[in-house]
Design a protein around this nucleic acid. Structure first.
Length: 272
DNA sequence: AGGTCGACCTGGCAGC
DNA sequence: TGCTGCCAGGTCGACC
């Protein structure tokens, strides 16, 4: 479900709520979301741990523990949620319930069970982090990187924007929105863009993601923040999910097409 | 090697 | 109402 702005929103909120809290107990209601160890081992490893920080890398939320070399890594995938609350009663699709020293609870909810929770000693144990590209809102992601990577990719620019070895955190919604804002046709081979278009793309990637974080993300469907609230960026969404609606810029009909098995939304009138 | 596809799951919704 | 088929914000291994 969530892309960079949604995961960043959750991580920032949880940082305020959970730093310094200890995990009193862990109830695994569906073990399929725990990877790399059995649910009992997962519970044993987490009980008594003090949460030292909460941060995001790509679309993963990472919890380091005080005085421990281990991390809890949570990947929400399509429908995962981390919801903090006062009740231990299972919510819809609660798969894991953490009880905290504060008296509160953290629910890991996941309708489709694609999400995963893992405990690792080093983040580089996970292939996901080994191959993950630069964070788009840091100086590692710059015009030089974009040009070097894109100039040798023949795949459609939409597919490459979603390739997390090129840039971390962009998913299906923001790929369409970024290309619309950039005025670039999603079907064009990445290598066909010119220097000016690379420059525009960099500007729009950072601009769209920053605005989406400010608005606390986009809730098309399942996304909820750690308080269970929807994101505010929906009202800023120009093309995603708007097939046959009017383009807000030129009034042409917004089109949908499928690229690498994922829906892309764009305006043929103003993206070329 | 780069690119695309299916698998992993559940559930909501449109159409009949 | 109930069935079928399609669709959904991600990732990864298999295949060409």
């Amino acid at each position: 479900m969530p892309e960079l702005p949604e995961v960043e929103t959750i991580a920032r909120d949880l940082r305020g709520l959970l730093i310094g809290a200890s995990i009193r107990d862990v109830r695994v209601r569906d073990g399929r979301v725990v990877r790399g160890m059995t649910p009992p081992a997962f519970r044993r490893k987490l009980r008594g741990r003090v949460i030292a920080d909460v941060f995001r890398r790509g679309k993963a939320i990472i919890f380091p523990f005080a005085g421990s070399p281990e991390y809890l890594v949570v990947q929400l995938m399509m429908t995962g949620q981390l919801i903090a609350g006062a009740s231990s009663l299972p919510q819809k699709d609660s798969r894991i319930i953490f009880s905290l020293s504060s008296g509160g609870f953290l629910h890991y909810n996941d309708q489709r069970l694609f999400g995963r929770l893992q405990i690792v000693k080093d983040l580089s144990e996970l292939k996901y982090f080994q191959i993950l590209g630069p964070e788009p809102l840091t100086k590692d992601f710059n015009a030089g990187w974009i040009e070097r990577l894109l100039s040798r990719r023949k795949a459609p620019i939409k597919s490459v924007l979603m390739d997390h070895t090129f840039v971390a955190g962009i998913g299906n919604i923001y790929a369409s929105e970024i290309l619309f804002e950039s005025g670039i046709d999603p079907r064009r081979p990445a290598s066909s863009l010119n220097k000016e278009e690379y420059r525009i793309l960099l500007k729009k990637i950072t601009g769209v993601l920053r605005r989406a974080i400010k608005q606390r993300g986009t809730s098309m469907n399942n996304y909820r923040d750690s308080a269970g609230q929807k994101g505010g960026f929906m009202k800023s969404i120009k093309v995603y999910g708007r097939e046959n609606e009017k383009c807000p810029r030129c009034s042409a009909k917004i089109q949908r097409l499928v690229q690498s098995g994922r829906s892309t939304f764009f305006c043929e009138g103003c993206q070329n």
